[in-house]
């Protein structure tokens, strides 16, 4: 049984039942896990920023850095491993903000909005989420079961 670590601005996939995909330290960043229970294929993305037009060159080299380049890549990569869109279970976490998040500091909120827009356009439903607030999160996806757990920086662990 192995933990496969997903770094910031990175995505990982898997179809080995004994592996777990895990990403640490989701602050304002967003973690998206997708899982096909029939094909037993899953993927986990940890993106940092909402919009790749900020730095097109960076987006080309590291598409997982941005919502609009990372999310499509996550889905397409899982299709290649045999997942099918209609069976995919999508769960999301992160997008935290600092307090009194004035309009200038709203990267967390922008990250959430960017994701919702992309899902809405592509008819993707979010099955469960743990977003917003002001704590960090660690997100795990067990590939055997599709179980997703979130651990908050204050130590609470919950399944979503």
């Amino acid at each position: 049984m192995a933990d496969i670590i997903v770094s910031i601005a990175d995505l990982k996939l898997g179809n080995r039942a004994d592996d777990t995909l895990i990403t640490f330290a989701l602050g304002s960043c967003i973690g998206i896990s997708i899982y096909d229970p029939q094909a037993k294929v899953g993927g986990l993305l940890h993106y940092m920023l909402p919009d790749s037009t900020l730095d097109a060159q960076k987006a080309q080299g590291q598409p997982a850095m941005f919502a609009d380049t990372g999310i499509p890549l996550l889905f397409k990569s899982c299709y290649r491993l045999g997942a099918e869109k209609k069976r995919l279970i999508v769960k999301v976490a992160g997008g935290a903000s600092i307090l009194d998040d004035a309009q200038f500091f709203r990267i967390g909120q922008k990250n959430i909005t960017a994701m919702r827009k992309i899902f809405w356009k592509n008819n993707v439903m979010i099955e469960a989420e743990d977003t917003g607030l002001n704590h960090n999160r660690t997100m795990r996806l067990e590939l055997a079961t599709g179980k997703v757990t979130i651990k908050s920086s204050i130590g609470i662990i919950k399944e979503i």
């Binding site: 640490f24 330290a25 602050g27 304002s28 935290a96 307090l99 500091f105 920086s153």
Partner: peptide, 11 residues
């Protein structure tokens, strides 16, 4: 915000 935080205090 990037998640390189100082601990339990989070954001």
């Amino acid at each position: 915000m990037v998640g390189v935080d100082g601990g339990v205090d989070g954001l």
